[in-house]
């Protein structure tokens, strides 16, 4: 059933793609705007996914199958202005196009935390301090894992919670995916370099997802990854370029120092630049953590403070892929009930 109602989705990552697919399947006229040259967002950069080690591109391929002719995709789209006319919107793009919308879905997602802000870890200064995204780039590109001087690392440390749960840099929330990503990447490193010694420095292991705990146990038991409870206080460079890590082994109650050839910083989520920009354009409310504030934390999780504007994905909070996909489908049905003025729309809390 074709509808004359128009929905514009801003952001072509996981949530934007999946919500657009469902809205188009319901018969709406959907335009998906993406600022980059192609769809996929962060997903396109991750080789294997926790907890199953499925290839990221398989999920991307699945999501793409939903983007059929009813979804008009505009890549390299730069939004200049959004006007409101009664309950409808007019979206002006930099290339002169003007889009009309009866509802807008904001799926502007997250950016990775800029690890340079944690000065004490020396990212951008010490050659062998990298981020989880840099390590994933090794995996995706198929490049050999080497230190800056071209040596196969004999030991690698993973620092959890970089840019998360840290009042000092202004992010008090948990980014949810980093613990299990460290476990995933540890296992992948062990698969590639069987002799490498791996240390994970964590505050809590937040293995909340189904199968996460099993993956954690596999990392310990099968792969011998060492988990050390304590937040790294500083990383320093030794004269040979290896990294000296200072941490408290909180379970032994003593400070500890150890050398690793490579230190991987598990960078968390921060609201994306796009989230800030679109939020300001549409006068959307931000929560205390600078992600979008949803109308209600339990039941109106896709609804914004502006009538006709909805959210999905990591623009409201850090989410892993599974959650971003279910959130997108929820947003699609929320938008449909808004456009059709279904009775479920009239509930209050």
């Amino acid at each position: 059933m074709k509808s004359s109602k128009k929905v514009v989705t801003i952001g072509g990552g996981i949530a934007g793609m999946e919500a657009s697919s469902f809205l188009a399947a319901m018969g709406y006229d959907v335009t998906l705007l993406e600022k980059a040259g192609e769809l996929g967002g962060h997903l396109a950069k991750w080789e294997k996914l926790f907890p199953t080690m499925r290839l990221g591109k398989e999920v991307l391929n699945f999501l793409s199958q939903g983007i059929y002719e009813n979804v008009k995709v505009l890549c390299n789209a730069f939004i200049e202005r959004i006007d409101r006319e009664l309950d409808d919107f007019r979206i002006y793009l930099a290339d002169g196009k003007v889009l009309e919308a009866n509802a807008i879905l904001v799926t502007t997602g997250y950016d990775l935390f800029d690890a340079r802000k944690k000065e004490e870890y020396g990212y951008g200064i010490y050659d062998n301090v990298i981020t989880s995204a840099d390590l994933e780039e090794f995996f995706s590109s198929g490049k050999e894992i080497r230190t800056a001087s071209g040596k196969t690392p004999a030991s690698v440390g993973f620092v959890h919670c970089v840019g998360s749960r840290d009042q000092k840099i202004g992010n008090v929330y948990c980014s949810k995916v980093c613990c299990v990503t460290a476990v995933k990447q540890s296992i992948e490193l062990k698969e590639k370099l069987s002799d490498v010694k791996i240390f994970c420095f964590y505050m809590d292991m937040r293995m909340y997802g189904m199968h996460f705990e099993a993956l954690y146990k596999e990392a310990q038991e099968k792969w011998g990854v060492q988990f050390i409870r304590g937040r790294v206080s500083e990383a320093c460079e030794n004269s040979d370029g290896s990294i000296l890590v200072k941490v408290e082994d909180t379970l032994a109650g003593r400070p500890m120092r150890l050398t690793v050839d490579m230190l991987v910083l598990m960078v968390g989520f921060v609201p994306s630049e796009g989230t800030k920009k679109i939020g300001n354009m549409l006068n959307l409310e931000f929560g205390p953590n600078r992600f979008f504030k949803t109308r209600d934390q339990h039941v109106l999780t896709n609804v914004s403070n502006v009538k006709g504007v909805f959210f999905a994905g990591a623009c409201t909070a850090p989410k892993e892929i599974t959650h971003a996909i279910t959130d997108a489908r929820a947003a699609a049905s929320t938008i449909a009930s808004y456009l059709e003025q279904n009775s479920v729309e009239k509930r209050t809390i």
Binding site: K217, Q220, G224, A252, R254, M256, R257, L258, T259
Partner: peptide
């Protein structure tokens, strides 16, 4: 007082792991 991991002898741990793999699961 620091635990200087680089200098510590971990032979006992290696031995235990070979005898009882669940040693690492704690």
């Amino acid at each position: 007082r620091q635990i200087v991991y680089d200098k510590n002898n971990r032979e006992t741990a290696t031995f235990l792991r070979s005898k009882e793999p669940t040693f690492n699961s704690c």
